[in-house]
Design a protein around this nucleic acid. Sequence first.
DNA 1: ACAAAAGTGTTTGACATACACCCATGC
DNA 2: GCATGGGTGTATGTCAAACACTTTTGT
Lengths: 234, 234
Amino acid sequence: MYTKNINTHLIEIQDYFKAAISVDCVIFGFDENELKVLLIESDLKEFKGKWSLLGDIMHPDEDIETAAYRVLRERTGLDGVYMEQVQAFGGINRHPAGRVITIAYYSLVNIQHVELKTHSNELHWHAVKDIRQMAFDHKEILGTCLERLQHKVIEQPVGFNLLPKKFSLRELQNLYEAILDVKLDRRNFRKKFFAMDYLIDLNEEEQEVRHRPAKLYKFNQEKFDKQHKKSLGF
Amino acid sequence: MYTKNINTHLIEIQDYFKAAISVDCVIFGFDENELKVLLIESDLKEFKGKWSLLGDIMHPDEDIETAAYRVLRERTGLDGVYMEQVQAFGGINRHPAGRVITIAYYSLVNIQHVELKTHSNELHWHAVKDIRQMAFDHKEILGTCLERLQHKVIEQPVGFNLLPKKFSLRELQNLYEAILDVKLDRRNFRKKFFAMDYLIDLNEEEQEVRHRPAKLYKFNQEKFDKQHKKSLGF
DNA sequence: ACAAAAGTGTTTGACATACACCCATGC
DNA sequence: GCATGGGTGTATGTCAAACACTTTTGT
Protein backbone atom coordinates (compact mmCIF):
# COMPACT_ATOMS: atom_id res chain seq x y z
CA MET A 1 0.00 0.00 0.00
CA TYR A 2 1.29 3.38 -0.95
CA THR A 3 0.24 6.45 0.90
CA LYS A 4 0.03 9.77 -0.82
CA ASN A 5 1.38 12.54 1.29
CA ILE A 6 1.18 16.16 0.38
CA ASN A 7 4.26 16.88 2.36
CA THR A 8 6.43 14.54 0.34
CA HIS A 9 4.83 14.09 -3.07
CA LEU A 10 4.10 17.17 -5.04
CA ILE A 11 3.10 16.00 -8.46
CA GLU A 12 -0.34 14.76 -7.54
CA ILE A 13 -1.44 17.86 -5.76
CA GLN A 14 -2.80 19.89 -8.64
CA ASP A 15 -5.85 17.65 -8.86
CA TYR A 16 -6.79 18.73 -5.40
CA PHE A 17 -6.76 22.47 -5.72
CA LYS A 18 -10.49 22.59 -5.97
CA ALA A 19 -11.72 23.62 -2.59
CA ALA A 20 -12.60 27.08 -1.40
CA ILE A 21 -11.62 28.54 1.91
CA SER A 22 -13.77 31.05 3.68
CA VAL A 23 -13.56 32.82 6.97
CA ASP A 24 -16.55 33.36 9.21
CA CYS A 25 -16.45 35.95 11.96
CA VAL A 26 -18.45 35.65 15.12
CA ILE A 27 -18.48 39.31 16.09
CA PHE A 28 -19.50 39.65 19.70
CA GLY A 29 -20.77 42.83 21.26
CA PHE A 30 -22.33 43.73 24.58
CA ASP A 31 -25.37 45.92 24.94
CA GLU A 32 -28.36 46.21 27.24
CA ASN A 33 -26.70 43.65 29.49
CA GLU A 34 -26.79 41.02 26.82
CA LEU A 35 -24.13 39.34 24.75
CA LYS A 36 -24.88 40.09 21.12
CA VAL A 37 -23.59 38.85 17.83
CA LEU A 38 -23.62 40.64 14.50
CA LEU A 39 -25.49 38.74 11.79
CA ILE A 40 -26.56 39.30 8.23
CA GLU A 41 -29.66 38.03 6.55
CA SER A 42 -28.84 35.33 4.05
CA ASP A 43 -30.16 35.85 0.54
CA LEU A 44 -29.39 32.38 -0.67
CA LYS A 45 -32.61 30.70 -1.66
CA GLU A 46 -31.56 27.69 0.41
CA PHE A 47 -31.46 29.82 3.53
CA LYS A 48 -34.09 32.44 2.81
CA GLY A 49 -34.87 34.42 5.91
CA LYS A 50 -32.18 32.74 8.00
CA TRP A 51 -29.38 34.61 9.66
CA SER A 52 -25.78 34.09 8.81
CA LEU A 53 -22.38 34.94 10.23
CA LEU A 54 -20.28 37.50 8.45
CA GLY A 55 -17.87 35.72 6.21
CA ASP A 56 -16.15 35.81 2.91
CA ILE A 57 -14.00 33.77 0.64
CA MET A 58 -10.34 34.10 1.40
CA HIS A 59 -8.49 35.83 -1.39
CA PRO A 60 -5.56 34.04 -2.97
CA ASP A 61 -3.06 36.62 -1.82
CA GLU A 62 -4.03 37.05 1.81
CA ASP A 63 -3.54 34.79 4.75
CA ILE A 64 -6.47 33.55 6.79
CA GLU A 65 -6.21 36.05 9.60
CA THR A 66 -5.91 38.90 7.15
CA ALA A 67 -9.11 37.76 5.50
CA ALA A 68 -10.87 37.64 8.85
CA TYR A 69 -9.73 41.16 9.69
CA ARG A 70 -10.85 42.32 6.28
CA VAL A 71 -14.35 40.98 6.83
CA LEU A 72 -14.45 42.64 10.20
CA ARG A 73 -13.26 45.95 8.81
CA GLU A 74 -15.61 45.93 5.87
CA ARG A 75 -18.59 45.22 8.07
CA THR A 76 -17.87 47.26 11.15
CA GLY A 77 -15.28 49.81 10.13
CA LEU A 78 -13.14 48.54 13.01
CA ASP A 79 -9.51 47.57 12.95
CA GLY A 80 -7.10 46.14 15.43
CA VAL A 81 -9.71 44.66 17.70
CA TYR A 82 -9.46 41.47 19.65
CA MET A 83 -9.76 38.39 17.46
CA GLU A 84 -8.99 34.71 17.92
CA GLN A 85 -9.12 31.78 15.55
CA VAL A 86 -11.34 29.01 16.83
CA GLN A 87 -11.28 26.16 14.39
CA ALA A 88 -12.11 24.95 10.90
CA PHE A 89 -15.49 23.59 9.89
CA GLY A 90 -15.55 21.41 6.84
CA GLY A 91 -18.57 19.15 6.59
CA ILE A 92 -18.96 17.84 3.07
CA ASN A 93 -22.31 19.47 2.36
CA ARG A 94 -22.09 22.48 4.56
CA HIS A 95 -22.22 24.91 1.64
CA PRO A 96 -24.62 24.59 -1.31
CA ALA A 97 -22.12 26.02 -3.78
CA GLY A 98 -19.57 23.28 -3.35
CA ARG A 99 -16.83 22.26 -1.05
CA VAL A 100 -16.16 25.24 1.17
CA ILE A 101 -14.08 24.86 4.27
CA THR A 102 -14.49 27.74 6.65
CA ILE A 103 -12.18 28.97 9.34
CA ALA A 104 -14.09 30.45 12.26
CA TYR A 105 -12.90 33.45 14.23
CA TYR A 106 -14.53 35.30 17.03
CA SER A 107 -13.86 38.90 17.82
CA LEU A 108 -14.79 41.17 20.67
CA VAL A 109 -15.81 44.70 19.79
CA ASN A 110 -17.14 47.72 21.57
CA ILE A 111 -20.60 47.81 20.15
CA GLN A 112 -20.72 51.62 20.41
CA HIS A 113 -17.81 51.90 18.01
CA VAL A 114 -19.52 49.91 15.31
CA GLU A 115 -21.21 52.00 12.70
CA LEU A 116 -23.13 49.69 10.47
CA LYS A 117 -22.51 50.70 6.90
CA THR A 118 -25.48 52.25 5.18
CA HIS A 119 -25.47 49.57 2.51
CA SER A 120 -25.72 46.99 5.24
CA ASN A 121 -29.19 47.55 6.54
CA GLU A 122 -29.59 43.79 6.48
CA LEU A 123 -27.07 43.69 9.34
CA HIS A 124 -28.37 43.30 12.87
CA TRP A 125 -27.18 42.65 16.37
CA HIS A 126 -28.85 39.62 17.91
CA ALA A 127 -28.92 38.50 21.51
CA VAL A 128 -26.91 35.29 21.50
CA LYS A 129 -29.27 33.51 23.85
CA ASP A 130 -32.29 34.17 21.66
CA ILE A 131 -30.85 32.74 18.47
CA ARG A 132 -32.63 29.59 17.36
CA GLN A 133 -31.90 28.87 13.73
CA MET A 134 -29.17 30.00 11.42
CA ALA A 135 -28.05 29.44 7.86
CA PHE A 136 -25.45 26.80 6.98
CA ASP A 137 -23.81 25.26 10.04
CA HIS A 138 -23.51 28.69 11.58
CA LYS A 139 -25.41 27.77 14.72
CA GLU A 140 -22.78 25.14 15.46
CA ILE A 141 -19.99 27.59 14.69
CA LEU A 142 -21.54 30.19 16.96
CA GLY A 143 -21.92 27.62 19.74
CA THR A 144 -18.31 26.54 19.48
CA CYS A 145 -17.10 30.15 19.49
CA LEU A 146 -19.22 30.98 22.50
CA GLU A 147 -17.76 28.04 24.40
CA ARG A 148 -14.30 29.20 23.48
CA LEU A 149 -15.06 32.71 24.68
CA GLN A 150 -16.45 31.39 27.95
CA HIS A 151 -13.26 29.45 28.52
CA LYS A 152 -11.07 32.35 27.56
CA VAL A 153 -12.79 34.91 29.70
CA ILE A 154 -12.17 32.99 32.91
CA GLU A 155 -8.51 32.57 32.04
CA GLN A 156 -7.75 36.05 30.82
CA PRO A 157 -9.44 39.41 31.15
CA VAL A 158 -10.43 39.73 27.50
CA GLY A 159 -13.92 40.90 28.37
CA PHE A 160 -12.79 44.52 28.54
CA ASN A 161 -12.74 44.56 24.77
CA LEU A 162 -16.53 44.43 24.82
CA LEU A 163 -16.92 47.42 27.11
CA PRO A 164 -16.55 51.16 26.63
CA LYS A 165 -13.23 52.61 27.79
CA LYS A 166 -14.88 53.79 30.99
CA PHE A 167 -17.10 51.39 32.83
CA SER A 168 -18.44 50.63 36.27
CA LEU A 169 -17.92 47.42 38.14
CA ARG A 170 -21.60 46.67 37.77
CA GLU A 171 -21.26 46.80 34.01
CA LEU A 172 -18.24 44.54 34.16
CA GLN A 173 -20.12 42.08 36.29
CA ASN A 174 -23.15 42.18 34.00
CA LEU A 175 -20.81 41.38 31.15
CA TYR A 176 -19.40 38.33 32.86
CA GLU A 177 -22.83 37.17 33.86
CA ALA A 178 -24.03 37.50 30.27
CA ILE A 179 -21.07 35.66 28.77
CA LEU A 180 -21.03 32.85 31.30
CA ASP A 181 -24.78 32.76 31.81
CA VAL A 182 -24.48 32.66 35.59
CA LYS A 183 -25.23 34.88 38.54
CA LEU A 184 -22.20 36.10 40.46
CA ASP A 185 -21.82 37.44 43.98
CA ARG A 186 -21.19 41.16 43.83
CA ARG A 187 -18.70 41.42 46.68
CA ASN A 188 -16.64 38.45 45.57
CA PHE A 189 -16.62 39.69 42.00
CA ARG A 190 -15.31 43.07 43.07
CA LYS A 191 -12.72 41.52 45.30
CA LYS A 192 -11.42 39.33 42.51
CA PHE A 193 -11.04 42.17 40.05
CA PHE A 194 -9.42 44.52 42.52
CA ALA A 195 -7.02 41.74 43.47
CA MET A 196 -6.11 41.24 39.80
CA ASP A 197 -5.07 44.86 39.85
CA TYR A 198 -5.81 45.66 36.24
CA LEU A 199 -8.37 48.37 37.05
CA ILE A 200 -7.45 52.02 37.03
CA ASP A 201 -9.70 54.21 39.16
CA LEU A 202 -10.62 57.22 37.03
CA ASN A 203 -12.03 59.23 39.94
CA GLU A 204 -15.12 59.78 37.89
CA GLU A 205 -18.68 58.76 38.44
CA GLU A 206 -21.64 57.67 36.39
CA GLN A 207 -23.89 60.51 35.26
CA GLU A 208 -27.64 60.65 35.11
CA VAL A 209 -28.50 57.64 37.13
CA ARG A 210 -31.29 57.89 39.68
CA HIS A 211 -29.34 56.25 42.45
CA ARG A 212 -25.92 56.49 43.95
CA PRO A 213 -23.53 56.80 41.02
CA ALA A 214 -20.91 54.12 40.55
CA LYS A 215 -17.23 54.88 40.17
CA LEU A 216 -15.73 54.48 36.73
CA TYR A 217 -12.64 52.49 35.88
CA LYS A 218 -10.56 51.68 32.87
CA PHE A 219 -8.58 48.58 32.07
CA ASN A 220 -4.84 48.76 32.51
CA GLN A 221 -3.95 47.24 29.18
CA GLU A 222 -0.28 48.16 29.39
CA LYS A 223 0.18 46.38 32.69
CA PHE A 224 -1.64 43.32 31.40
CA ASP A 225 0.47 43.20 28.24
CA LYS A 226 3.66 43.53 30.21
CA GLN A 227 2.80 40.78 32.64
CA HIS A 228 1.59 38.57 29.87
CA LYS A 229 4.77 39.00 27.91
CA LYS A 230 6.69 37.94 30.97
CA SER A 231 4.65 34.81 31.39
CA LEU A 232 5.35 33.89 27.78
CA GLY A 233 9.04 33.94 28.59
CA PHE A 234 10.14 36.92 26.51
CA MET B 1 -18.30 49.99 -1.65
CA TYR B 2 -19.71 46.58 -2.22
CA THR B 3 -18.69 43.63 -0.16
CA LYS B 4 -18.57 40.17 -1.62
CA ASN B 5 -19.84 37.58 0.80
CA ILE B 6 -19.73 33.90 0.20
CA ASN B 7 -22.70 33.37 2.37
CA THR B 8 -24.96 35.54 0.27
CA HIS B 9 -23.51 35.71 -3.24
CA LEU B 10 -22.89 32.47 -5.00
CA ILE B 11 -22.06 33.34 -8.53
CA GLU B 12 -18.61 34.62 -7.86
CA ILE B 13 -17.45 31.67 -5.93
CA GLN B 14 -16.27 29.38 -8.68
CA ASP B 15 -13.25 31.59 -9.26
CA TYR B 16 -12.11 30.82 -5.77
CA PHE B 17 -12.16 27.05 -5.77
CA LYS B 18 -8.46 26.87 -6.21
CA ALA B 19 -7.05 26.15 -2.82
CA ALA B 20 -6.09 22.80 -1.39
CA ILE B 21 -6.89 21.63 2.10
CA SER B 22 -4.64 19.29 3.94
CA VAL B 23 -4.66 17.80 7.39
CA ASP B 24 -1.54 17.48 9.50
CA CYS B 25 -1.50 15.14 12.47
CA VAL B 26 0.66 15.70 15.50
CA ILE B 27 0.78 12.14 16.78
CA PHE B 28 1.98 12.15 20.35
CA GLY B 29 3.34 9.11 22.13
CA PHE B 30 5.09 8.53 25.44
CA ASP B 31 8.18 6.39 25.84
CA GLU B 32 11.27 6.35 28.00
CA ASN B 33 9.71 9.08 30.10
CA GLU B 34 9.66 11.44 27.19
CA LEU B 35 6.87 12.92 25.12
CA LYS B 36 7.43 11.83 21.53
CA VAL B 37 5.97 12.78 18.21
CA LEU B 38 5.84 10.68 15.06
CA LEU B 39 7.54 12.34 12.10
CA ILE B 40 8.46 11.47 8.55
CA GLU B 41 11.47 12.60 6.60
CA SER B 42 10.49 15.08 3.92
CA ASP B 43 11.65 14.27 0.43
CA LEU B 44 10.79 17.61 -1.05
CA LYS B 45 13.92 19.23 -2.34
CA GLU B 46 12.94 22.39 -0.48
CA PHE B 47 13.04 20.54 2.81
CA LYS B 48 15.65 17.88 2.17
CA GLY B 49 16.58 16.15 5.39
CA LYS B 50 14.00 18.01 7.45
CA TRP B 51 11.29 16.28 9.42
CA SER B 52 7.65 16.72 8.70
CA LEU B 53 4.34 15.97 10.38
CA LEU B 54 2.15 13.28 8.92
CA GLY B 55 -0.37 14.84 6.66
CA ASP B 56 -2.27 14.45 3.48
CA ILE B 57 -4.55 16.31 1.15
CA MET B 58 -8.17 16.06 2.12
CA HIS B 59 -10.15 14.09 -0.42
CA PRO B 60 -13.17 15.76 -2.01
CA ASP B 61 -15.62 13.31 -0.49
CA GLU B 62 -14.44 13.16 3.10
CA ASP B 63 -14.77 15.67 5.88
CA ILE B 64 -11.76 17.06 7.64
CA GLU B 65 -11.87 14.83 10.66
CA THR B 66 -12.26 11.75 8.48
CA ALA B 67 -9.16 12.77 6.58
CA ALA B 68 -7.25 13.16 9.81
CA TYR B 69 -8.30 9.73 11.04
CA ARG B 70 -7.35 8.28 7.68
CA VAL B 71 -3.84 9.68 7.90
CA LEU B 72 -3.56 8.31 11.41
CA ARG B 73 -4.79 4.88 10.38
CA GLU B 74 -2.58 4.66 7.31
CA ARG B 75 0.49 5.56 9.30
CA THR B 76 -0.05 3.80 12.58
CA GLY B 77 -2.69 1.16 11.93
CA LEU B 78 -4.66 2.66 14.80
CA ASP B 79 -8.28 3.63 14.82
CA GLY B 80 -10.58 5.26 17.31
CA VAL B 81 -7.84 6.94 19.29
CA TYR B 82 -8.03 10.30 20.96
CA MET B 83 -7.87 13.18 18.50
CA GLU B 84 -8.65 16.86 18.67
CA GLN B 85 -8.66 19.58 16.04
CA VAL B 86 -6.40 22.43 16.98
CA GLN B 87 -6.61 25.09 14.31
CA ALA B 88 -5.95 25.98 10.71
CA PHE B 89 -2.63 27.25 9.39
CA GLY B 90 -2.70 29.14 6.17
CA GLY B 91 0.27 31.38 5.58
CA ILE B 92 0.49 32.37 1.93
CA ASN B 93 3.79 30.71 1.22
CA ARG B 94 3.67 27.89 3.69
CA HIS B 95 3.68 25.22 0.95
CA PRO B 96 5.92 25.29 -2.12
CA ALA B 97 3.28 23.65 -4.34
CA GLY B 98 0.76 26.44 -4.00
CA ARG B 99 -1.89 27.64 -1.66
CA VAL B 100 -2.40 24.86 0.84
CA ILE B 101 -4.32 25.50 4.00
CA THR B 102 -3.77 22.83 6.59
CA ILE B 103 -5.94 21.85 9.50
CA ALA B 104 -3.87 20.63 12.42
CA TYR B 105 -4.94 17.82 14.71
CA TYR B 106 -3.16 16.20 17.57
CA SER B 107 -3.76 12.69 18.71
CA LEU B 108 -2.64 10.68 21.69
CA VAL B 109 -1.64 7.10 21.08
CA ASN B 110 -0.21 4.25 23.06
CA ILE B 111 3.18 4.04 21.48
CA GLN B 112 3.34 0.28 22.07
CA HIS B 113 0.32 -0.24 19.84
CA VAL B 114 1.88 1.53 16.90
CA GLU B 115 3.48 -0.80 14.40
CA LEU B 116 5.25 1.34 11.89
CA LYS B 117 4.50 0.02 8.44
CA THR B 118 7.41 -1.66 6.70
CA HIS B 119 7.25 0.78 3.80
CA SER B 120 7.53 3.57 6.29
CA ASN B 121 11.06 3.16 7.50
CA GLU B 122 11.42 6.87 7.04
CA LEU B 123 9.03 7.25 10.03
CA HIS B 124 10.51 7.95 13.43
CA TRP B 125 9.49 8.88 16.93
CA HIS B 126 11.21 12.03 18.11
CA ALA B 127 11.47 13.45 21.57
CA VAL B 128 9.44 16.66 21.39
CA LYS B 129 11.90 18.65 23.43
CA ASP B 130 14.82 17.80 21.18
CA ILE B 131 13.22 18.94 17.94
CA ARG B 132 14.92 21.97 16.45
CA GLN B 133 13.99 22.40 12.83
CA MET B 134 11.14 21.05 10.78
CA ALA B 135 9.85 21.27 7.22
CA PHE B 136 7.17 23.82 6.26
CA ASP B 137 5.67 25.61 9.25
CA HIS B 138 5.48 22.34 11.10
CA LYS B 139 7.53 23.54 14.03
CA GLU B 140 4.94 26.21 14.69
CA ILE B 141 2.12 23.70 14.29
CA LEU B 142 3.80 21.32 16.68
CA GLY B 143 4.29 24.11 19.20
CA THR B 144 0.67 25.16 19.04
CA CYS B 145 -0.51 21.57 19.43
CA LEU B 146 1.78 21.01 22.38
CA GLU B 147 0.38 24.09 24.09
CA ARG B 148 -3.12 22.86 23.46
CA LEU B 149 -2.25 19.47 24.92
CA GLN B 150 -0.72 21.09 27.98
CA HIS B 151 -3.90 23.04 28.55
CA LYS B 152 -6.11 20.06 27.95
CA VAL B 153 -4.25 17.71 30.22
CA ILE B 154 -4.72 19.89 33.27
CA GLU B 155 -8.44 20.23 32.56
CA GLN B 156 -9.25 16.65 31.69
CA PRO B 157 -7.49 13.34 32.24
CA VAL B 158 -6.68 12.69 28.58
CA GLY B 159 -3.14 11.63 29.38
CA PHE B 160 -4.20 8.04 29.91
CA ASN B 161 -4.45 7.65 26.16
CA LEU B 162 -0.68 7.82 26.02
CA LEU B 163 -0.11 5.05 28.54
CA PRO B 164 -0.46 1.26 28.43
CA LYS B 165 -3.70 -0.11 29.89
CA LYS B 166 -1.88 -0.97 33.11
CA PHE B 167 0.38 1.62 34.61
CA SER B 168 1.90 2.71 37.89
CA LEU B 169 1.44 6.08 39.47
CA ARG B 170 5.08 6.78 38.85
CA GLU B 171 4.55 6.32 35.12
CA LEU B 172 1.52 8.56 35.25
CA GLN B 173 3.49 11.23 37.05
CA ASN B 174 6.39 10.93 34.63
CA LEU B 175 3.89 11.45 31.83
CA TYR B 176 2.53 14.64 33.33
CA GLU B 177 6.02 15.91 34.06
CA ALA B 178 7.02 15.25 30.46
CA ILE B 179 3.98 16.93 28.95
CA LEU B 180 4.03 19.95 31.21
CA ASP B 181 7.82 20.12 31.50
CA VAL B 182 7.71 20.58 35.26
CA LYS B 183 8.64 18.66 38.39
CA LEU B 184 5.71 17.60 40.54
CA ASP B 185 5.50 16.61 44.18
CA ARG B 186 4.88 12.87 44.40
CA ARG B 187 2.55 12.90 47.38
CA ASN B 188 0.38 15.72 46.09
CA PHE B 189 0.22 14.13 42.68
CA ARG B 190 -1.00 10.83 44.10
CA LYS B 191 -3.50 12.57 46.32
CA LYS B 192 -4.95 14.47 43.41
CA PHE B 193 -5.42 11.42 41.24
CA PHE B 194 -6.88 9.28 43.99
CA ALA B 195 -9.28 12.10 44.79
CA MET B 196 -10.37 12.27 41.15
CA ASP B 197 -11.36 8.66 41.61
CA TYR B 198 -10.78 7.52 38.05
CA LEU B 199 -8.15 4.93 38.95
CA ILE B 200 -9.00 1.27 39.32
CA ASP B 201 -6.62 -0.68 41.53
CA LEU B 202 -5.75 -3.87 39.65
CA ASN B 203 -4.14 -5.56 42.65
CA GLU B 204 -1.16 -6.26 40.50
CA GLU B 205 2.42 -5.15 40.77
CA GLU B 206 5.25 -4.24 38.49
CA GLN B 207 7.52 -7.14 37.53
CA GLU B 208 11.25 -7.27 37.22
CA VAL B 209 12.16 -4.06 38.87
CA ARG B 210 15.06 -4.05 41.28
CA HIS B 211 13.23 -2.18 43.98
CA ARG B 212 9.89 -2.28 45.69
CA PRO B 213 7.35 -2.89 42.90
CA ALA B 214 4.65 -0.33 42.33
CA LYS B 215 0.96 -1.18 42.22
CA LEU B 216 -0.70 -1.10 38.83
CA TYR B 217 -3.88 0.76 37.95
CA LYS B 218 -6.12 1.26 34.99
CA PHE B 219 -8.18 4.27 34.00
CA ASN B 220 -11.90 4.09 34.66
CA GLN B 221 -12.96 5.31 31.24
CA GLU B 222 -16.62 4.41 31.73
CA LYS B 223 -16.93 6.45 34.87
CA PHE B 224 -15.20 9.38 33.24
CA ASP B 225 -17.46 9.23 30.18
CA LYS B 226 -20.57 9.06 32.33
CA GLN B 227 -19.62 12.01 34.48
CA HIS B 228 -18.56 14.01 31.47
CA LYS B 229 -21.83 13.38 29.71
CA LYS B 230 -23.61 14.66 32.77
CA SER B 231 -21.57 17.84 32.84
CA LEU B 232 -22.45 18.46 29.20
CA GLY B 233 -26.08 18.41 30.17
CA PHE B 234 -27.21 15.23 28.46
C1' DA C 1 23.01 -4.34 54.84
C1' DC C 2 22.42 -1.50 51.21
C1' DA C 3 20.35 0.74 47.20
C1' DA C 4 16.30 2.35 45.06
C1' DA C 5 11.98 3.64 44.60
C1' DA C 6 7.07 2.96 46.76
C1' DG C 7 3.97 4.45 49.84
C1' DT C 8 1.90 7.54 53.31
C1' DG C 9 -0.22 12.45 56.62
C1' DT C 10 -0.08 16.80 58.45
C1' DT C 11 0.48 21.60 58.44
C1' DT C 12 0.11 25.88 56.03
C1' DG C 13 -1.43 29.56 53.28
C1' DA C 14 -4.24 31.11 49.40
C1' DC C 15 -8.33 31.52 47.44
C1' DA C 16 -13.53 30.87 46.65
C1' DT C 17 -17.93 31.12 48.88
C1' DA C 18 -21.54 32.72 51.52
C1' DC C 19 -23.70 36.27 53.56
C1' DA C 20 -26.00 41.54 55.58
C1' DC C 21 -25.68 46.15 56.43
C1' DC C 22 -24.88 51.15 55.62
C1' DC C 23 -24.28 54.84 51.95
C1' DA C 24 -25.12 58.24 48.26
C1' DT C 25 -28.10 59.95 44.93
C1' DG C 26 -32.56 61.34 42.40
C1' DC C 27 -37.11 61.92 42.80
C1' DG D 1 -38.24 59.92 53.07
C1' DC D 2 -38.08 56.39 49.99
C1' DA D 3 -36.52 53.71 46.21
C1' DT D 4 -32.49 52.16 43.90
C1' DG D 5 -28.41 50.34 43.36
C1' DG D 6 -23.26 51.35 45.23
C1' DG D 7 -20.01 50.08 48.30
C1' DT D 8 -17.81 47.29 52.04
C1' DG D 9 -15.77 42.96 55.65
C1' DT D 10 -15.75 38.67 57.97
C1' DA D 11 -16.12 33.88 58.74
C1' DT D 12 -15.82 29.32 56.66
C1' DG D 13 -14.53 25.71 53.72
C1' DT D 14 -11.80 23.89 50.03
C1' DC D 15 -7.83 23.05 47.70
C1' DA D 16 -2.85 23.40 46.46
C1' DA D 17 1.85 23.45 48.39
C1' DA D 18 5.46 22.15 51.23
C1' DC D 19 7.68 18.75 53.49
C1' DA D 20 10.33 13.55 55.84
C1' DC D 21 10.10 9.10 57.23
C1' DT D 22 8.98 4.12 56.83
C1' DT D 23 8.30 0.07 53.73
C1' DT D 24 9.29 -3.29 50.31
C1' DT D 25 11.96 -5.53 47.12
C1' DG D 26 16.41 -7.12 44.62
C1' DT D 27 21.17 -7.61 44.94
